[in-house]
C-alpha cells in the first residue's frame, strides 16, 4: 500500500493565499488609519475665543474674564476630546483588523500543517 504523499504544490498554494490575506489586512488597516487621519484633518482648527466683552457694569468687568477663560478651557477640552477619540478609534480599528487577520492566519496555518501531516 503506497504511503501518503506530501503535496508541495498545494502547501505552497495555501501559504501564498495566507500571505495574500495578510497583505490585504495590512492594506485595510492602513486605509482605516488614513481615514482616521483624514477625520482628524477635518477638525476645525479654531482656537477658543478669549475676547473680553466690553461692559460698563463693574460686576461684569470683574466676572467676564473669568467666564471667558472658563469657556475657553471647556471649548479646548471638547476639541481635544474629539481629536483623541478619532485617534483612539482609528488606532483600535486598525489594530483590530490586524488582530482579526492574525487569528485567521493562525487557523489557516494550522489547517495547512494538518493537511501536510496527513499528506506526508
Amino acid at each position: 500500500m503506497p504511503g501518503p504523499v506530501f503535496d508541495a504544490g498545494a502547501f505552497l498554494g495555501g501559504l501564498l493565499r495566507l500571505q495574500l490575506g495578510n497583505l490585504n489586512a495590512l492594506a485595510e488597516a492602513q486605509r482605516s488609519a488614513i481615514e482616521g487621519l483624514t477625520a482628524l484633518g477635518r477638525q476645525p482648527p479654531r482656537l477658543p475665543d478669549l475676547a473680553m466683552p466690553i461692559s460698563s457694569d463693574p460686576r461684569s468687568i470683574v466676572t467676564a474674564p473669568v467666564e471667558s477663560l472658563k469657556a475657553a478651557i471647556l471649548e479646548g477640552t471638547a476639541q481635544a476630546n474629539a481629536m483623541l477619540e478619532i485617534t483612539a478609534r482609528a488606532n483600535a480599528e486598525a489594530t483590530g483588523i490586524l488582530q482579526e487577520r492574525a487569528l485567521a492566519a493562525l487557523d489557516e496555518w494550522k489547517a495547512l500543517l494538518l493537511a501536510a501531516t496527513r499528506g506526508g
Binding site: A78, Q79, I86
Partner: peptide, 16 residues
C-alpha cells in the same frame, strides 16, 4: 459619529 461630540458640543460646549 463621536461620543466626544455628544458629551462636548451637544451637551456642554455650545460654542462648538
Amino acid at each position: 459619529s463621536l461620543a466626544a461630540l455628544a458629551t462636548g458640543p451637544c451637551m456642554a460646549v455650545p460654542a462648538r
